[in-house]
Design a binder for these strands. Sequence first.
RNA 1: GCGCCCGUAGCUCAAUGGAUAGAGCAUCAGACUUCGGAUCUGAGGGUUGGGGGUUCGAGUCCCUCCGGGCGCGCCA
Length: 551
Amino acid sequence: MVALLEQALQKAKEAGDLPITQMPEITVEPPRVKEFGDFASNVAMLLTRELKKPPQQIAATIVKHLPEDPLVSKVEVAGNGFINFTLHPDWLYDVLRDIQQKGDAYGRWNVGQGKRVNVEFVSANPNGPITVAHGRGGAIGDVLANLLEAVGYQVTREFYVNDATNSLQMQHFARSLVVRYRQLLGEDVELPEDGYAGEYLVDIARDLLEKEGKHLAEGDEDTVIERFRAYAEDAMKRQQQQDLADFGIVFDVWFSENSLHTGGQVAQAIEELKARGYAYEHDGALWLRSTAFGDDKDRVLVRNNGQPTYIAADAAYHKNKFERGFDYLIDIWGPDHHGYVARTKAAVAALGYPVENFEVLIYQIVRLFKGGDLVRMSKRAGNVVTLRDVLEEVGKDAARFFFLMRSHDSPLDFDLELAKKESSENPVYYVQYAHARICSILRVAGEQGWTVPAAAETDLSVLREEQELALMKKLDEFPEEVLTSATERAPHRLTRYSMEVADAFHKFYDTCRVVSDDRSLTQARLVLVDATRIVLKNVLGLLGVTAPERM
RNA sequence: GCGCCCGUAGCUCAAUGGAUAGAGCAUCAGACUUCGGAUCUGAGGGUUGGGGGUUCGAGUCCCUCCGGGCGCGCCA
């Protein structure tokens, strides 16, 4: 279609009908309203400025020069200048053949050409369980990673562990654990003011007591704190790994912040920043000149007590990622971190790395609802709802799907009651049901001796019902949808698309019987139904949601 | 005060600068002697927060105002 339009423009130009100097970027898209045909192009409008003529007139000229094509059955110029193409249904039959031939690979691209992308997400501190908020970041990151792989990138999923032993948080965390441990021993001690009130610490303390005995809190304070810190952190990390695995996320790399400190990489990054002239001494501290790269103020790299700050470690971390050979870095952060985007980008730029290859995606908050009621959460009070709570309540599939029903930059209301419902109100069931229903049809067909025939050898031209054509068009959109979702960093588009496919299928099912006495119609519909199954399986696969054969 | 995100149907949200702004839920009215009714059909419902601008065309881009969320540490 694009090629046809290009030829038409070229011919019109040569004929002197359209004196254009520069070829416009020609795009073709399915129109909103199906009466306008199968594909539409807005080239004529794009040329109005240069040609100073109304778009309809330009469109008419283009159409006059449009070469004949056996696939195109009708070309019309709309009143506003759109050029609308109606195609012979044959092109849709090619879509089915394409799907059947490619199978799992239908929807995949190679635009990434094997370039390496590091997607860093979740990165929860090792001082508490994975929460629902992390769950959202997890779903976004994991599915974005799937999408990038699908379009041809080589992706590494990475979790940054904020395990710097000297951080205040980890110190408070360790102290709180010591208190819980002593309480279990019957001592009358209370949590410090900045302590962690969560029940999970009691569980860890109990575990510690059982496995290591009751003498762990003896000895000088620093030794005790460090002992408990190391134990708690390890236990926490294992639990996080398990929770995420149960959520369907397996990281390739768990990167330790502490290793940057102990390995000298933080110090090295600081030296490099100094050498490049982007670090300076002031008030006894060392500052990063982040304002040189658009930040509102400069940031402290090394405190006046000699301790490096978080941003120093982050500079070293991103430098490390580029040094590991990644072409692109994508960080996925929670809403409370958006203030750190500018300074982190500044650090990357100051170190001389291509900042345009470093993206940060900020997702917005998650509010949990139970029926109509908001579930209140507060980390300080220790009543955080964990990802595990949600998984136990609604299951992995519903959880992942729900986290991806909204754009990442829109707040998300997660209704636990709805996610649990086994009815059409629940979109994840709606989509899975479509898949199970297809499998059921194929089973029944199989029992009657039918198999899905090779599409290339099947007469598909009997597929003429409106619902059949609509379904095929929807299946045709899949590869484009994958590409857009990946490049726009919009994994949530997949949930919507999956619902549209399910919708188109259910409408087809309602009007068209697959297995019938009509041999050629049955064969053609088996191809269509199986192609739908493949697309549903592929899109659910990208979402990390199972495609059940029975429900 | 400054920065980021958001404001679209009763509710929750979609919509590479394109045509008559779409879904789901909710509400109301309908449809199975059939391969899975966890389904389908239909109806009502809108000044896209207000006002300016950019252009062939703006929910989308720019300015401004209003409203909401979050962040503004030598914490991570």
